[in-house]
Simulated scan of single mutants.
Amino acid sequence: MQIRFAAVIPVVLTIACITGCSSPSSAPRQQGSMPVGTAEVTVNDQKLATSKSVACSIEQATTTIQTGDDNAGTTVIVDNSGKPVARSVVIRNLGGFTGSYSQDLGPSADVKWTGRTVTVAGTADGFNADNPSVRATGQFSIAVSC
């Protein structure tokens, strides 16, 4: 009887160690939020591929979010000192559109925080790649999880 008991102890200890040492499962995401470090951009009703090239920085009440790179991506600046407000949005060569939005020039952009995900939607002035000499507007929605 003691021999069987001695053989069972290492198995029980191994199972206990694996259970106790495994990393805890992450908390479920809030509905409407995205995995951290991802971005979803829609320009002129064209949903672009999900990006994992995301950089977020916070300085006092200002959050700066960059997606993509210098050739194709976005830069969003949100003021969080009160109700969140989009100060500016720059869209670089996405969906054939390049343009920008500024807080006090034209209609305001909507900003919504859900957990760690911010969504900014509005209208940018710029141009389309297929006709760069003509001014164009672009509807945008940028959702990023920092």
Rank of each mutant, 00 (worst) to 15 (best):
Q2H: 11
Q2Y: 11
A6V: 06
A6E: 08
A7R: 10
V8R: 09
I9E: 06
L13S: 06
T14I: 12
I18G: 06
T19R: 10
G20H: 10
G20K: 09
C21T: 11
S23M: 10
P24K: 12
S26C: 07
S26Y: 09
Q30A: 11
Q30L: 15
Q31T: 12
Q31H: 10
M34T: 09
P35Y: 12
V36T: 12
V36F: 09
T38D: 07
T38R: 08
A39R: 00
A39Q: 04
T42H: 10
V43W: 03
K47I: 12
L48P: 05
T50S: 12
K52E: 14
C56L: 07
S57P: 05
S57Y: 09
A61V: 13
T62E: 13
T63A: 10
Q66P: 05
Q66G: 09
T67L: 04
T67N: 02
D69K: 11
N71L: 15
G73L: 04
T74C: 08
S81E: 05
G82R: 07
P84R: 03
V85N: 01
V85R: 02
R87C: 05
R87N: 15
S88F: 05
V90P: 03
I91M: 03
L94D: 00
G95M: 09
G95S: 08
G95I: 06
G95Y: 07
G96H: 09
G99D: 01
S102E: 14
Q103K: 10
L105Y: 12
A109N: 02
V111T: 07
G115T: 01
R116N: 15
R116M: 13
T117W: 04
T117N: 05
T123R: 10
T123I: 14
A124S: 06
G126D: 01
F127H: 15
A129I: 13
D130G: 05
D130F: 09
D130E: 12
N131R: 13
N131L: 09
V134Q: 15
R135M: 13
A136Q: 05
A136H: 03
T137D: 14
Q139F: 09
F140T: 00
V144Y: 01
V144I: 05
